[in-house]
Write a protein that binds this DNA or RNA. Structure first.
Length: 267
DNA sequence: ATGCCGGTGTCACACCGA
């Protein structure tokens, strides 16, 4: 049994109390955090180790972005890709020690895809181009993968109509534009990734993982999007036995605007 | 719904999120 969770935490330091609450409540074997918003030496490593998450791979930077994978089962950091080619901390890849699928140790890649700015036009908005380029480099990486891999994190794209509160209203909003969805589809096809979330909560059922801070009464208005994902190699995904969301976490004290997702595997 | 919120960093604001 191996359980893996992903959560865009929007500051690991500010939200240490709810990280601890989550780990004590759900106790996944591995937790992948995005937007830790700190440098590696500022990450609350000791507090998480005290809860049993002593194996850690942290890729941070000052103030923004940053990812960390913490685990209570042994992991080995294997890569940090700079898929945006600008030095930002948006990926860390680990191997899970002695957990095999098809005779090979499984890998978990934790990624924070760039948001992409406001305007969905790479001529007017360089950040949008950087987001697409990031995904193209991820796709090149995926083509060469030869180990069972789980890639999780904030993809900052809600690909399906049922992944957003209003498909038509969001067609020109970055995160749900056709060009982003097509670019993500090319990534998916490059490795045959299985969208584990949608294997368990099937389209067209509502499935959101993020609600803006700006919309009051998030539960009433429910203007959410599915920006966070857990995608696995086919043979790895076949071992998934369960998948769930923790919507209640959006109402915790000083909440993140994202909620945690977790998948259990028979490994 | 281009923001009514909410992070960080440096010191009243900028910049970022999506």
């Amino acid at each position: 049994m191996l359980s893996v969770a992903t959560w865009n935490i929007n500051s690991a330091r500010l939200r240490l109390p709810i990280i601890e609450k989550y780990l004590e409540m759900q106790g996944p074997d591995v937790l992948c955090l995005q937007e830790i918003k700190c440098q590696e030496h500022q990450f609350p490593a000791d507090a998480l180790a005290a809860l049993g998450y002593e194996h850690q791979a942290i890729c941070g930077q000052k103030g923004y972005h940053g990812v960390a994978t913490v685990s209570r089962v042994p992991i080995r950091e294997v890569t940090r890709h700079d898929w945006q080619a600008n030095g930002e901390a948006r990926h860390v890849g680990v191997e899970v020690v002695d957990r095999e699928v098809g005779g090979k140790n499984v890998r978990i890649d934790n990624v924070y895809v760039p948001a992409g700015g406001d305007e969905p036009d790479r001529e007017k908005n360089p950040k949008f181009g950087q987001k697409l380029d990031f995904l193209e480099r991820m796709t090149d990486w995926a083509k060469s993968l030869d180990v069972p891999t789980l890639i999780v994190g904030d993809f900052n794209i809600a690909p399906l109509e049922s992944d957003v509160w209003n498909h038509k209203q969001l067609l020109k909003v970055v995160s749900h534009t056709p060009v982003e969805v097509e670019t993500l589809e090319r990534f998916q096809k490059a490795h045959g990734w299985v969208d584990i979330g949608r294997e368990h909560i099937r389209d067209p059922e509502r499935y959101f993982s993020w609600w803006s801070y700006r919309s009051k009464d998030w539960r009433v208005n429910d203007r959410g999007r599915r920006l966070d994902h857990m995608w696995a190699s086919p043979e790895f995904a076949a071992r998934a036995t369960g998948h769930s969301l923790l919507e209640d976490a959006r109402d915790w004290e000083k909440p993140s605007d994202h909620i945690p997702l977790v998948t259990e595997f028979d490994i």
